[in-house]
Simulated scan of single mutants.
Amino acid sequence: MKITKLFAEFFENEKASGLFLICCTIFSLILANSSFGIDYLHFWHINLAGNSIQYWINDGLMTIFFLLIGLELEREIYQGELSNIKDALLPIFGALGGMLVPAGLFLVLNFGTQTQSGAGIPMATDIAFALAILSLLGNRVPVSLKIFLTALAVIDDLGAILIIAIFYTKTLLWTNLIIAMCVFVILLIFNRLKIRNLIPYIIGGIVMWYFMLHSGVHATITGVLLAFAIPFGNGDKKSTSYILQHFLHKPVAFFILPLFALANTAIVLHSNVAEVLKENYSLGIALGLIIGKPLGIFFVSLLAVSLGICKLPSDLNWKSILAVGFLGGIGFTMSIFITLLAFDTVEIVNNAKFVILLSSLIAGIIGYLSLKLVLKKDVIQN
């Protein structure tokens, strides 16, 4: 199976980014629990232009991350795995199972409580971490499996974006939202008029972000809308979309996401870990990521293939789909992001972050060891 140059570049950047994110997370946890912990925690809450540094990272810089996700999703739809509906159906069904089953498990444990709003937390997959773990297995990983996990994670991100827009919008200021959407329509008109210069889109994107920020809808959604307003053309190296996507890869992978990790994993670990893990929301997150994700991905994919809706690539088997499903349980970036929207209590937010990190670590280890065993057997059999 042929891999496009941009996909190969994307895979390599995400792989390196994931490994770098692991280092940043470990560093942040160590620093937060050291003698410098109080100063380190205080740093992220320093007031900057009326809001904390952490706020500007989460609501400002992360919009650029969502812009990159939107550009990648757009490319997948026009030219990638999602361009052929028959090829796209397997990761689509896998992603649906990987979102619905974890959310269902969380709701079973938390329905009717103040923490039921956290159902979106175990639905997300961190593409950088997942691909970083997959890359540790080297050339033994079939190309189809790389593409399956990448497409699944991109669809997961789309699902997370929709969840944020629909379920985590608490109050709406319609005037600001209408202005933001009017700017979006203007940018779409620019697209139809074949205006290729990035400057009008960037200026329009900033204006749209400002009004979206003050509308009640999370401002990061602006990034995705802007991505689909930017001209894709024929998708070659000269297209506006390609140029911007290529430019954003490294700043997002090696600056924005590491900053997000540092700012949001500054968690002070307490001695009562056992008590934290007994909480219903903790159990919901852990079961959702470690069990719900792989089982949802596996069984819904199996159902779709059994019904003849889609087919399993010739170089894959169900053991490898189940194994890679555990990598889908690495939530991290999106899970932490949704946690910040779902909960208001600082203690619950910090506990949830800790459980996300622990669950993602467990899911990653199980996924890696399972794939190592499965792919090694496949090599011997072949």
Rank of each mutant, 00 (worst) to 15 (best):
A229C: 12
I230N: 11
P231Q: 04
P231F: 06
G235W: 06
G235L: 11
K237D: 08
K237V: 12
K238W: 15
T240Q: 11
S241E: 04
Y242A: 07
Y242L: 06
Y242K: 13
I243W: 09
I243A: 12
H246D: 06
F247L: 11
L248T: 07
H249N: 15
V252P: 00
F255T: 06
F255G: 14
F255W: 11
F255S: 10
I256R: 10
P258R: 02
L259M: 13
F260C: 01
F260M: 06
F260Q: 03
A261D: 00
A261Q: 07
L262D: 05
L262P: 02
A263F: 10
A263E: 00
A263W: 03
I267A: 04
V268N: 14
S271Y: 01
S271F: 08
N272D: 14
N272G: 04
V273A: 12
V273I: 15
A274R: 12
A274T: 15
E275D: 15
E275L: 09
E275P: 02
E275V: 10
V276C: 10
L277K: 02
K278W: 15
K278H: 15
E279Q: 14
E279I: 04
N280K: 05
Y281M: 13
S282K: 13
L283T: 07
L283K: 07
A286I: 07
A286L: 12
L287T: 07
G288I: 05
G288Q: 03
L289V: 08
I291R: 05
I291L: 12
I291T: 10
G292L: 12
G292F: 00
G292H: 04
P294L: 14
P294N: 11
G296V: 09
G296F: 03
G296R: 00
I297N: 05
I297W: 05
I297Y: 00
F298Y: 07
F299Y: 09
F299G: 02
V300L: 12
V300W: 03
S301P: 10
S301F: 08
L303V: 04
A304I: 02
A304N: 05
V305H: 12
V305F: 05
G308N: 03
I309K: 13
I309T: 09
I309E: 06
C310W: 14
K311P: 11
L312K: 11
P313I: 01
P313N: 09
P313H: 11
S314A: 12
D315H: 03
D315C: 13
L316F: 02
L316Y: 07
